[in-house]
């Protein structure tokens, strides 16, 4: 239609369109304002106040950070934290994805029941949850008593206050998150996908790996990010199940700030944790894109 009009009319028309678009943008902006204000006052400002001083600590701007990465003890804690978060995420994926698929294939009634059961751990207080694990993993706990009764061990095996204990506790804590997120995505994948793959010669396992898994990848990535960031920042579980010998970043921050009174040191670790989280989220997304593109190109 624009082609039939004289140039003048065309520009007029375009102005009008632009005006409309701008109006929509501005009204959208107004709606974002309340959220932005809350974020600015309650998140960005305090964060800046905590982080800015870390750059004037020491001789040059980044010396506090450089000395963190030069300190062997700090680095042990740093890598332990990342390792625990990665292992927890991997275990949650391996355990959660098939479970989520199973739940998503159940009838509506059973789906509700099974989801409620899998969310159940999240409804208990994390301190109580961790104490339950102390009961199970402790030297006089259920596992050790069983091992000794069967004769697999003569004296209690050290399970509690290890990285293993933290990972177990974290998996228990975050597995529901993975299951709920992934089964939500998988519910929307029709049975016909599995059936089509089977009719083309794939057994159920291959059909799952080649069709259902890649189709639910967006949900798995979101679940992975939730589990990873959750484990990275969890405080109660590593504190109660890891003890003082297996410090992670979150418990370490608390120790620096509250026990030692080194607020600047705590702030440095905080910023490093934020950066690590952002990098990992970026990494997850890049991975998702790569896997997706592999599907897109002809193989």
């Amino acid at each position: 239609m624009a082609g039939l009009e004289v140039p003048c009319g065309e520009t007029l028309g375009r102005h009008k369109v632009n005006g409309e678009v701008e109006m929509k943008k501005s009204s959208a902006f107004i709606m974002v304002v309340p959220g932005l204000v809350i974020l600015a006052v309650c998140l960005f400002l305090p964060l800046l106040r905590v982080i800015v001083p870390t750059f004037s600590d020491g001789e040059y701007p980044f010396s506090a950070y450089i000395s963190f990465f030069q300190d062997e003890y700090y680095m042990t804690i740093f890598f332990r934290t990342v390792k625990i978060a990665l292992i927890t995420t991997a275990v949650c994926m391996i355990g959660g994805v098939p479970t989520a698929y199973f739940i998503s294939r159940c009838s509506k009634k059973w789906r509700g029941i099974l989801l409620a059961v899998s969310i159940f751990p999240m409804m208990t207080n994390s301190v109580i949850r961790s104490f339950a694990w102390i009961n199970i993993l402790g030297s006089n706990g259920i596992v050790n008593r069983f091992l000794m009764a069967v004769g697999l061990a003569d004296k209690p095996v050290k399970l509690l206050y290890t990285e293993f204990a933290i990972i177990i506790g974290s998996v228990y804590l975050f597995l529901p998150l993975m299951i709920v997120t992934v089964s939500g995505v998988m519910e929307n994948i029709g049975d016909d996908m599995m059936e089509a793959a089977q009719s083309l010669g794939a057994n159920r396992l291959i059909a799952f790996m080649k069709v259902i898994f890649p189709m639910s990848l967006p949900g798995i990535i979101v679940g992975g990010i939730l589990v990873f960031t959750g484990t990275l920042t969890a405080y109660t579980t590593p504190q109660l199940l890891g003890g003082n010998t297996n410090m992670v970043m979150a418990t370490f921050i608390y120790q620096r700030a509250m026990a030692v009174g080194d607020w600047n040191g705590a702030a440095v670790i905080s910023l490093i944790m934020i950066v690590v989280t952002l990098i990992v989220i970026k990494g997850f997304n890049a991975l998702a894109n790569r896997l997706d593109r592999r599907g897109e190109s002809n193989g």
């Binding site: 016909d192 089509a196 069709v211 897109e296």
Partner: peptide, 8 residues
């Protein structure tokens, strides 16, 4: 529903 694989 055709059941084409959307990721391929």
């Amino acid at each position: 529903s055709y059941a084409l694989f959307p990721h391929l």
